[in-house]
Nucleic acid binder design. Structure first.
Lengths: 343, 343
DNA sequence: GCGTGGGATTGGAACGTTCCAGCCCATGCC
DNA sequence: GGCATGGGCTGGAACGTTCCAATCCCACGC
């Protein structure tokens, strides 16, 4: 371990130590097959002895690559965040390592402009590519980057642009909700209600279709059992009251944990225990996202496989960086169900 | 905006456009005071016209600085995380921008070795310094980095090392809890219980001292009103039952939101409404961290000023990078109280 | 014995920036 | 008028790596 005051070893230092040329040391690191076995061993020894690591700046300059991928943190919305970013980032950093990449975070100066920040990093060659999250609100970053042929992978489908060519990874919300419906039907529920978002949300409609279709597949009616509104606890509660009074559902499936929290609150106010025992008047609740509040309140919830998502994103980005115009456009992953006491 | 196929402009390109030398363009960016006003204007025009941004790799190589700060994401512990990292990271990325820095994430190959990853980044000159979080568990990274005179700032006090010289930023948990006690006393509570962690936690004892001292300052007794245990919902509940039965407290202050969740659950089971109306048999609860579950359950909670923490950390790190051996060692910030319906 | 092919190794050049020494020229002082 | 001063600008050199063309050398075939 070299003291920090001593100058860091360079290729030349190592070369002198091993009695070879600078280039041979470079080859030992990047193309070891070019070296004779004994030379390679000698160079390796010198590298280890001196504790040499190639200088990233010099390598970046020469190869015109930074091995960094940019991720823009979108404006933090207090309370509404389900805390998924934490899990996602973690795995992203983790799986980047395997490809010799690192994640660089940035934010926009101007939060109202969703493109802000990308251009600067790109022009200064600070990053090789991007991971674009938050595509649900129709993130224009995807279009902008596509036009400039910048390597990037989106977390989220390009719902509104059927012939988008960029790679993306998404979670099958429809399948996740279908999973929840199956779970409930298997436990004897027949009148299963849906509480979700407004019609203009692609994501919301996708999730809802999982409820509609699976209910019909299992021979159950969805008539009058659906409510749509804002993604708030309050709306979740109000919808629950209304549905309980008019349709007597025995279970609720929600488009988000936030809505499910509203359901739990309403049930508590009515003195109904949330749970799976249908014969004993209990009412089941399933949320979506497996957020911290869900875990704490023992809420059954659909869990996005964020770890897999991150792995796939890095894989696709890696492909894209190696061969700019290849790779399948989209990958869809299936969620799981975290079964807890509310179902 | 240059098409990506055209080579990016360099200093020479801009110099030719402006009719000056390469070095003059460089000076226009780094030391504009050296240029005559009209020359500066001409160079600026050329820069804007060509959309020039200095190449980071070249700059990094020459200046021996990367303008990146490393942050190691510690192993993600499902459920136990209060989701603070998200808020913190966001503001860290945000305030880094002001100093021309960016945050680079990394993880250890081997999660059991808390030093893993630091060395590699350092030797390859990939980062200029580090932000070390998670110092509460006695993170040895601080010691390791200190010994090597690597610039870094810790989030968290060096509790166990009184003469540590490195800069750090921390939140005054003691003051936060005192704030909670004051809030409750002002509302008429006198029998205020504490539910916290085991004695071996510096952090836990610091928070607890806020309760002990402020209670005494307000002329109230703490005798038999304290419980210590694991940081779990279950322990929170059990401690609540025990205290309710023996000491009839009218309020609970907790070392964490997790414990507070346990209190809420126990109260609910007993048919007691959490809230501030002491005359009507309600029992008040205050948590610590203002986590997502707290926000959702309308729990009053002590909120760490993570945004300020991030700002201070960047400020200290910036100082440290500019003048390696200056700056005050520690900054302590005061939390606030997010008052909600449980108090 | 000599030319040839090819594996192993080498040294110059280049990536794009900033450092540094030096040049040019206008100004001011004696 | 001669000379020192200094502001404004320039061009060579260097940062540490990889690319590329060239060289070395050994084995092989005729």
């Amino acid at each position: 371990m070299p003291a920090r005051s001593r100058p860091a070893p360079t290729l030349d230092t190592v070369a002198a130590e091993a009695g070879v040329s600078r280039q041979t040391v470079s080859n030992a690191l990047n193309s070891p097959h070019l070296l004779r076995a004994d030379t390679l061993a000698r160079v390796q020894l010198a590298i280890d002895k001196l504790g040499y690591s190639p200088n990233r700046a010099a390598r970046n300059l020469r190869t015109r690559a930074s091995h960094l991928i940019g991720l823009r943190l979108e404006p933090f919305i207090e309370g509404s965040a389900s805390g998924l970013m934490d899990r996602f980032l973690h795995q992203l950093a983790e799986s980047s390592r395997g490809s010799g990449l690192h994640v660089l975070l940035f934010t926009g100066d101007d939060h109202t402009n969703p493109l802000d920040g990308y251009d600067a990093l790109l022009r200064s060659a600070a990053v090789d590519g991007f991971v674009v999250t938050d595509t649900y609100r129709g993130n224009p970053a995807a279009t902008w980057l596509s036009e400039r042929q910048v390597p990037f992978v989106a977390f989220g489908r390009p719902w509104d642009d059927a012939d988008a060519k960029h790679p993306w990874v998404d979670v099958d919300g429809r399948a996740g909700v279908a999973l929840a419906v199956d779970h409930l039907v298997d436990r004897g529920h027949q009148r299963i209600a849906w509480i979700g978002w407004q019609k203009n949300s692609y994501l919301g409609e996708d999730r809802r279709s999982g409820w509609v279709d699976r209910m019909h597949e299992r021979g159950l009616s969805t008539s009058r059992l659906s409510a749509r509104g804002d993604d708030t606890i309050d709306f979740g509660s109000r919808a629950t009251y209304a549905l309980l009074d008019s349709e007597q559902p025995t279970a609720f499936v929600c488009a988000s944990d936030t809505l499910a929290m509203g359901v739990l609150q309403a049930l508590r106010d009515r003195g109904v225990r949330p749970g799976g025992l249908i014969g004993q008047g209990e009412i089941a609740v399933v949320g979506f996202d497996d957020s911290l509040p869900a875990q704490v309140t023992e809420l059954t919830s659909v869990r996005q496989p964020l770890e897999q998502v991150a792995v796939e994103i890095v894989k696709l980005l890696d492909q894209r960086l190696a061969h700019p115009m290849t790779g399948q456009p989209g990958v869809v992953l299936t969620p799981t169900l975290s079964e807890r006491s509310t179902s």
